[in-house]
Design a protein around this nucleic acid. Structure first.
Lengths: 177, 177
DNA sequence: GTCTATTGTTGCAATAAGCAACAGGAGGCG
DNA sequence: CGCCTCCTGTTGCTTATTGCAACAATAGAC
């Protein structure tokens, strides 16, 4: 059940054996698993008072200001109750607050100043890890890597699956950045 | 506190403004966070009876046959008690077993046949997700992406931090030293 | 103005994870 | 050879995370 998924568009022209692509895709998966697993571990040291889920919620609010609790739950495939509880904790902690101008259905969320501080702190630590791993990369290589990663993340996902964590705008409207 | 970390080695030559690299690195981090967060969500559907930690443990044993409980704990920054309990569950489940020839300090671990089956099943599901996102990539692009990811993962990590999750062989590999 | 669907919250249960204390054995040293 | 120390794994207790189900409150539809 692995993947004859090159049904899509192109499949290159240079060296592309099917087996080659197969192997490369498997390598991509393995690398992504490492990244994911390492992210969980790194999140533990990034901010001692904020769990990984907390940090993810903060990140989601940063990327989607005014989002509601349900949006977060859908994005991370979490139960609404889980998000509700975590949000309650975060609001009590003073890092998240509800926007005053609540017009639509739910309660729009936003980060407080200390929320931004906590977010920046966590990001800073993770930045250190990333910087370390990109140490001997050229600027062009880093740029290309960033481009590939973004392309991968915005790829086909969001169709089959409910929605991504961060980065995908809630409303498909205007014009993707 | 973000990062003037191009202290390292090279910094390319073509277009490399410091700000450019700064932005690209930030993009890399954002993308990696998305991947990590999405990995947690995907792990929930990859194998219903195995938690993300369980799957990680299986993956680690796959990559490090004969590893011991402590190795896993260090790799994932988990408490030994956590790993011990999870391993007990996995052994009772019949997916992990202890190798008979225990010579050294701890008890070497290995996967059983059903352990491999469970691992393959989880990998297969994740493969589907990856395939979907790589759908419109050329073979060459996939290969390049895989290469970059592996380079990133094997980068500088493993020096500052205790050890990685998967992929890093316990003995420092071939060429490096 | 009522009715339905969405949104958020709480009770209960299961799992995951950490800390501390402890048992058992490997290796080192006299 | 015998003792001592450190490593490895396990268990008791506690806390945190997550899900399911039931419930309250409200926005939007009719």
């Amino acid at each position: 059940m692995v993947g004859e998924s090159n049904n899509g568009s192109n499949s290159g022209s240079n060296n592309g054996t099917a087996a080659e692509r197969e192997r490369a895709t498997a390598d991509v998966l393995r690398a992504l698993i490492v990244i994911s697993r390492r992210g969980v571990a790194d999140a533990r040291i990034a901010n001692l008072s904020l769990s990984m889920t907390d940090q993810s919620i903060l990140g989601y609010i940063v990327d989607h200001p005014g989002c509601r609790s349900t949006d977060i739950a859908q994005a991370f495939r979490l139960n609404r109750s889980t998000v509700s509880r975590q949000l309650a904790g975060l609001m009590q902690l003073g890092v998240v607050s509800e926007q005053a101008d609540a017009s639509g259905r739910g309660r729009p969320l936003e980060l407080t100043d200390s929320g931004w501080a906590a977010y920046d702190e966590a990001i800073g630590i993770l930045r250190g890890v990333v910087d370390e791993n990109l140490d001997d990369w050229t600027d062009a290589e880093v740029a290309r890597f960033a481009h590939d990663l973004q392309r991968f993340n915005t790829g086909a996902a969001g169709e089959t699956r409910p929605r991504h964590p961060l980065e995908a705008p809630p409303a498909p409207l205007d014009s993707a950045p």
